[in-house]
Amino acid sequence: MAKAKKSTKKKQPVILITNDDGVTAPGIRALVESVKGLGKIIVVAPDKPQSGMGHAITIGHPLRLQKVSVFDGVETYACSGTPVDCVKLAVDKVLKGKPDICLSGINHGANHSINVIYSGTMSAALEASIESIPSIGFSLLDLSIEADFTAAKKYARILVEHVLGSKSLDKHLCLNVNIPKGEEGIIKGIRICRQAYAKYEEEFDGRKDPHGRQYFWLTGAFVNFDKGKDTDVWALKNNYVSVVPVQFDLTHYALKKKLETNWKF
């Protein structure tokens, strides 16, 4: 009896996509479109905007997960929780295992410099990294609902292809990618950068509601204190796509060594 031939068909990579602007945001649609054909896409994203949620998780009330029809031919779920909740639920309940890569975005607005700390987009990517899932967070420096994602889609695909095609990357790989605002032709290329020391100089604008009770609006201006030409802020200002490798290990190793040497207990 002839032996059955082994299948030589290559297994498709599984691509998990999430965001913090909500499952119906234009940015996540652009991200789905940018990686079509690279693998099996599964979308698990918040059912409403979750910007600025950072690494928050839901513990005080139930999480709901609903299958929705948003993208043609792409299995999609809307989650009542945060971006990090979406990744956790995707791994445990939807995929029942780990995807080959997790993509978050494309965010409406910058996530360069210190913004990575507050970003729901990047927290979703970092959550995947914690689970040993290579991940990339994408952001476009345009807050408009009518933003042009043409260039962002092009560079997202390039970077995803690089990660999927690499065999020796760190299992906790996490990249923070920001794309300049504007037409594709203005972008000069991609720069691997470090995170700039830049932040918002914040103020709280105090006001009164109709009942005379005080409330506050957070305001302020973004200030770059870092004059280096190897930073994400510099790259974006000079029309480069910035790529910053980030990590969830917040240990300050140089200071740790100094304290071990100088502090005696």
Rank of each mutant, 00 (worst) to 15 (best):
G54P: 04
P83W: 04
D85C: 01
I59P: 00
I59W: 07
D100R: 09
T58R: 01
D92P: 04
P62Y: 08
G97I: 06
V70G: 04
Y77I: 05
V70Y: 09
I59L: 14
V68Y: 06
M53C: 10
Q50H: 06
S69M: 13
F71D: 12
P83S: 09
K67L: 15
G60Q: 14
P62E: 14
G81R: 05
G97D: 14
R64N: 08
D92I: 04
P49N: 11
G81P: 00
V94D: 14
E75A: 07
L63R: 01
H55M: 10
I57H: 07
M53E: 15
D100W: 02
V94L: 11
D72E: 15
M53A: 11
V74F: 03
V91S: 06
K96V: 06
K93S: 11
V94G: 04
Y77W: 14
V87C: 03
T58E: 06
D72L: 06
C79V: 07
G60S: 12
L95F: 07
K98S: 10
C79N: 02
T58V: 08
Y77V: 05
K67C: 03
A90E: 07
P99K: 11
P49H: 14
D92F: 01
D92M: 11
S80L: 10
D100A: 08
G97Y: 08
D85F: 01
L89M: 13
V68E: 09
L65Y: 08
R64D: 01
C79F: 00
T58G: 10
L89I: 02
G97T: 12
D85N: 04
D85G: 00
C79Q: 03
V87P: 00
Q66S: 11
K96P: 13
T82W: 00
K98A: 08
D85E: 11
H61L: 05
D100F: 01
V91E: 12
V84M: 04
G60R: 12
S69F: 03
L95N: 09
Q50M: 14
L63M: 12
K93P: 00
S51G: 08
G52F: 10
V70Q: 13
S69V: 03
Q50I: 02
E75C: 02
P83T: 05
V74N: 05
